[in-house]
Nucleic acid binder design. Structure first.
Length: 354
DNA sequence: AACTCGGGGAT
DNA sequence: ATCCCAGAGTT
């Protein structure tokens, strides 16, 4: 992926100029900067809005003002102070990492990237943030804000959630991060992303980088970034009622159109529990068949389609009485010949269960 | 690369 | 309801 933005002469300086007058006043932005406080704030801010963090951060510093105080706390106490903030492994990892800093580095937060990254709960983003903000090291800190801003600035049309784009943005940031103000640069990107270059309706008129932004130049700022999220497929509960007459199974052919068209399946209905069983019995009744009492569940199957998931619960029941009304789409299949019909997806597997 | 982990606010 | 958020660890 090769990206050029000829209009982006020296946008970092424009950004820093804007930051001087627009920087947010946040409790962890002390002067001088305290590496421990920066670290705590970065962990708390993962996937969490500033306003949600603020009270927790204040409370945290009251209880654990230093590396040493946090290192000497119990995990129970640590979790109690984190209670309600979510993502509790963040608290456990931070506690463990701070204990290691206390033991291995004498309580001083490491100022080398390799050492930071070795700490539990510290990834590329957090390491970059702490090193740049607290220690003035020119290390990028690529988070959701930075991905969004860069995708617009450089007109990156690929999925920003992919590893490929994150890698490319990291490289771009590495190229432009000012050596003399890396912390301000990274924090300025956060503030810009929080107030101007926001996800839905970016305020381009107020943006210091409007003259450098390729997306704005093309009028496509609202189309970016591209975020392709795996959305969970709807799950459908299916109750299957396998009816057998000693040597044969009763099976049904699905409609000629739609999902698994014209393939054969065991009698079934949407629903689970007694409601599912009742619905399945209703299907049998319409076919002219009555079954005895059901046993089971004898098994479950989970089948994933491209767009939905079937969660199947399988019951068995003996044939009681009745005659098939529809000989086209229903049949008694000899159990020995189960390979002779085209099964509707997962239904073929049921022959191995019952 | 996909999944999991919380909770709250905006749309 | 769905999206989104100063991500990282596990598989």
């Amino acid at each position: 992926m090769t990206i050029h933005n000829e209009t982006a002469h020296d946008w970092p300086q424009l950004l820093l100029g804007w930051f001087r007058t627009h920087r947010r006043d946040l409790p962890w932005r002390t002067s001088p900067r305290d590496p421990y406080k920066v670290w705590v704030s970065e962990i708390m801010l993962q996937q969490t809005k500033v306003e949600a963090v603020r009270p927790y951060y204040e409370n945290w510093l009251d209880h654990f003002p230093t590396v040493a105080s946090l290192a000497s706390a119990t995990q129970e106490e640590v979790l109690r102070q984190w209670q309600g903030l979510g993502y509790y492994s963040r608290a456990r990892n931070l506690h463990q990492a701070v204990c290691e800093v206390q033991a291995r580095y004498g309580g001083k937060v490491p100022d080398r990237e390799k050492d930071m990254l070795s700490l539990k709960g510290v990834g590329a983003y957090t390491a970059g943030a702490v090193l740049s903000i607290a220690y003035g090291r020119p290390v990028p800190a690529v988070d959701g804000n930075v991905l969004r801003i860069f995708s617009r600035l450089y007109l990156i049309e690929d999925n920003i959630l992919s590893a490929k784009v994150k890698k490319e943005v990291t490289r771009l940031a590495q190229d432009v991060i000012p050596d003399d103000a890396p912390g301000d640069f990274n924090e300025a990107l956060m503030d810009l992303g929080a107030s101007i270059c926001i996800p839905r309706h970016p305020r381009c008129q107020e943006c210091p980088l409007v003259s450098c932004c390729l997306a704005h130049e093309k009028g496509r700022e609202t189309e970016l970034p591209v975020r392709i999220v795996k959305k969970d497929k709807p799950a459908v509960d299916i109750t299957v009622l396998v009816v057998s007459d000693r040597q044969s199974w009763l099976i049904h052919r699905r409609p000629a159109k739609g999902l698994l068209a014209s393939m054969w399946e065991f009698p079934n209905a949407v629903g689970k529990g007694n409601a599912g069983l009742d619905a399945a019995r209703e299907v049998l009744k319409k076919a002219g068949i009555r079954a005895g009492s059901a046993s089971g569940p004898v098994g479950t199957l989970r089948h994933v389609f491209s767009h939905k998931v079937w969660q199947m619960t399988i019951y068995t029941a003996p044939y009681a009485n009745g005659t098939l009304l529809d000989k086209e789409d229903w049949q008694w299949l000899p159990q020995a010949g189960y390979t002779q019909v085209p099964w509707a997806g997962p239904h073929g597997k049921i022959t191995a269960i019952v």
